[in-house]
């Protein structure tokens, strides 16, 4: 019953978003091959996915299925073996600040202060505005993630959670077209993870930057996403199923947990993963 529901939703989605103008990120027939001494290892094949403007998509799948490979290919950090990736209809050429990345480890430069870390990106993207304005941009986003008291703290002095907050600020501050998140909260304890999910969704609600996020956490996937994309296990991984999450935004954790559909969604995802 449920599966039929989602299929129907998918169908209506396609009708709604039929005009190609609304597609932000288009992966078509994407393929990734790693040559090995024993022959080619095909990680991804026939992977098709259209992500709309202002959409938040989470990707869930078993470890090693190629989620991270896919994300780093979108980021331009990993070359494509076949097919294409387009942002707003234009094929990507290597990495660039139009696709911001929040990495699994915060990847802040430990020798820089939090402000300098955010400024590193801001200087690059907003080179044409005055230094004061650039600093204001960086400070605004640090404020948004609750780091307003730590502008001049060295990144290595911060806890993992705090560092990842700066990582979020750094990614949003360069105003990318697409935000790519590679299990950004995977290394955090569950309390901090909840906190950071709230911060992320709060900033995102304001900016509405198209986001693609990899996660292992079913609850996180449902709480954050408009659509949850389920990937089949590799090799030759592809999109297995897509689940629409029809919760209103802005969401609170409580409203999501109390919603009647929550457990239906959850069951759907877990059934897929355990299949």
């Amino acid at each position: 019953m449920n599966a039929i529901n989602t299929k129907q939703n998918l169908a209506t989605d396609n009708v709604i978003f039929n005009s190609s103008n609304d597609v932000m990120l288009d992966l078509s027939e994407l393929k990734k091959v790693y040559p090995t001494p024993k022959g080619d290892y095909i990680v991804l094949e026939n992977l098709n996915l259209k992500i709309m403007k202002e959409e938040f998509v989470t990707i869930i799948g078993h470890s090693g299925c190629g989620k991270t490979t896919m994300l780093s290919m979108i980021a331009g950090l990993n070359p494509i073996s076949g097919g294409s990736i387009a942002v707003l209809g234009k094929g990507i050429k290597g990495p660039g600040p139009d696709r911001g990345v929040i990495f699994q480890s915060p990847s802040l430069m430990p020798w820089m202060t939090t402000l300098e870390n955010v400024m590193l990106g801001v200087n690059q993207v907003f080179g044409h505005v005055s230094k004061k304005q650039r600093q204001d941009i960086a400070k605004y986003y640090l404020h948004k993630v609750g780091m307003e008291d730590s502008f001049n703290k060295k990144a290595k002095e911060l806890s993992q959670g705090m560092q990842q907050r700066v990582g979020i600020a750094r990614a949003f501050a360069i105003k990318p077209k697409v935000l790519l998140l590679d299990e950004p909260f995977g290394m955090l304890d569950s309390l901090t993870r909840g906190e950071l999910q709230d911060i992320l969704i709060e900033v995102w609600n304001k900016e509405k930057i198209t986001a693609v996020m990899i996660t292992h956490d079913v609850d996180e996937a449902i709480f954050l996403a408009d659509r949850v994309v389920m990937m089949t296990s590799g090799p030759r991984a592809k999109i297995g199923d897509i689940l629409d999450i029809n919760f209103d935004r802005p969401r609170t954790r409580k409203s999501v947990l109390d919603h009647d559909d929550y457990y239906t969604y959850r069951k759907h995802l877990i059934d897929f993963l355990e299949h």
Partner: peptide
């Protein structure tokens, strides 16, 4: 660290920077 290099790549820092 490859992470730092990736950050530099994503931000498209120039060679000098």
């Amino acid at each position: 660290d490859q992470d730092y290099i990736n950050v530099a790549k994503v931000l498209k820092l120039g060679t000098f920077q």
